[in-house]
Amino acid sequence: MTETILAALERYYDTVPRVGGARGEDFGPLTLFVQEGDGWAYYARPTPGGSGATAADVRKVLERQRELKVPESFEWVAESSPSLRAAVEAAGLHVHAHPLMVLDATAEPLPPHPEVRLIGADDPLLRAAVTVPALAFAAPGTAPGEAGPAALARALEDPQTRARRDRVAAMLREGRTGMAAAVRDGVVLCSGQYNPVGDVAEVVGVGTLPAARRQGLALAVTAALVAQARQRGARTVFLSAGDEDVRPGPRRGRRRAGRRRYGWWPVRAPGRGGGGR
């Protein structure tokens, strides 16, 4: 891992909440991002150039998060803030480490998958595309599961899916995100997004309907997202996997897609499980 990549990631993590409509509240060595209005509930993270945070600093942020009734979430890159894990754990919190991977700039792109296409703001399948990851993440892991097209159809009846669709449509129109989906017989089986800030882009929310797992769809969607991000000027493309099971492995996507695992990204996970992004 190079200092250049670390610096790029730090700039990205400090900027993406701001362009997403959040305000930064200053807690010295930590910054808490608070969403204004509807949108993603962001995290607290190290202030760029700040000194090492202590357990007391973490507790102050926790008090504010509880006051605001927002997720008690802290996110950081381990190599950039090596002492923060100890401070977070000393404050009584659990840390969950996510494998963090960056795309190898020399890797040859994968050929386009015939079932994968880019999704625009006016695509009639956008509502399904923003709903599929929620069904995927509700059944963690890589093993095939029960949730399939019928479960997706039921989920689309929830009025909240329209609100999610509208938020993502606005982001697509503004160029703040890109989306791709694997579609078979008119049904979205897998989808994901990438969020660009300057010349850095993060691939996020790639999820496959449990019934359609282990068909290479997530890898194909990721490849499509990477291709568009690069076409739009991204020089650094990265992602964080939920855990070791779902990260692209050395005999699967990681070598074929040209990704290399270069570090760990610790994320505070609430006691009920989950956390992270």
Rank of each mutant, 00 (worst) to 15 (best):
R255S: 13
I5H: 15
T2H: 13
G24K: 05
A7W: 01
S191W: 13
R252I: 14
R176V: 14
L84E: 02
Y12W: 11
Q193G: 03
A97N: 10
F27P: 05
S51M: 15
L125A: 10
A150H: 10
L239C: 05
G50Y: 11
G21K: 04
G37D: 02
P133E: 00
G21E: 03
V95S: 04
S240T: 14
A139W: 00
R167S: 06
C190K: 00
W76S: 04
T236K: 07
L217F: 01
A105T: 12
V203C: 02
V34N: 08
Y13S: 05
A153Y: 03
A212H: 01
S83D: 13
D38F: 14
E3K: 09
P71D: 00
G263Q: 09
A151S: 11
P112H: 15
L217R: 01
V197Y: 04
V77Q: 02
G37T: 03
A147P: 06
R247V: 11
L156T: 14
Y43V: 11
P111H: 12
A220H: 01
G175I: 11
A257I: 06
T161I: 07
V16T: 01
P133L: 00
P196W: 08
G249Y: 09
A269C: 10
G120F: 13
T142G: 07
G263R: 05
R23D: 13
L103Y: 08
P112L: 10
V237F: 08
G52T: 13
M1H: 15
V267F: 08
E79I: 07
A163K: 14
A134S: 11
P46I: 00
R59H: 10
L110R: 00
A223D: 10
E36W: 11
A170H: 13
D57L: 06
L93V: 07
S73K: 10
W265A: 15
R23V: 13
W40S: 04
V183G: 01
T142A: 06
R127G: 09
R18P: 03
S73T: 11
G249V: 15
A201F: 15
L125T: 10
P248N: 08
G148Q: 06
G198K: 01
G52K: 13
A87G: 04
S51H: 13
V188H: 07
L84M: 07
P248Y: 09
R45G: 06
R66V: 08
A151T: 11
G271T: 08
L6Q: 05
A97H: 12
G192I: 00
S51C: 15
G28E: 06
R162F: 04
M171F: 15
L172I: 07
A44H: 05
T54N: 09
H94R: 15
R247S: 09
A227D: 10
V102T: 06
A8D: 03
A121S: 05
V183D: 01
T208N: 01
S80H: 12
P17N: 04
G275H: 06
V58M: 10
R66C: 08
C190G: 04
